[in-house]
């Protein structure tokens, strides 16, 4: 059996990649995808714990279902926002979207 640590390690690495992408990528879509990647890393953990945990049961998978649902909704809304921004500012470059400053 592949030990629990292996899955968790994969989750941790994916999460770190997601963090890096979130912080540095300029394209708004990639930023959104980075967030999805981070959520995925969490899902891996949840599912792994659902099989290997101390009180392991199916609830971990159900939690993942909700996470995926929310992530899907978030992706849809995020993309809609990006489209709206693109229409107004002709860019989705994260470093140029600074209207919060004003």
């Amino acid at each position: 059996m592949v030990p629990l640590g292996g899955y968790l390690a994969v989750g941790a690495i994916l999460f770190s990649i997601g963090v890096y992408g979130l912080l540095t990528k300029k394209n708004g879509i990639i930023v959104l995808l980075s967030i999805e990647l981070m959520l995925n890393a969490v899902n891996v953990n949840l599912v792994a714990f659902s099989r290997f945990g101390i009180a392991a049961n199916i609830t971990g998978q159900i939690f993942s279902v909700f996470t995926i649902t929310v992530a899907a909704a978030e992706a849809a809304i995020g993309l809609a926002i990006l489209v709206a921004i693109f229409r107004n500012k002709a860019t989705i470059n994260a470093s140029e979207i600074d209207i919060m400053k004003r």
């Binding site: 059996m1 030990p3 629990l4 640590g5 968790l8 390690a9 941790a12 690495i13 999460f15 770190s16 659902s50 099989r51 290997f52 945990g53 101390i54 392991a56 049961n57 199916i58 998978q61």
Partner: peptide, 18 residues
């Protein structure tokens, strides 16, 4: 940090059959 935590924690090794 995460990897360190994972590495140093002793996890239950026996999988539960779902």
């Amino acid at each position: 940090f995460l990897l360190y935590g994972i590495y140093t924690t002793s996890w239950p090794t026996e999988p539960t059959d779902l």
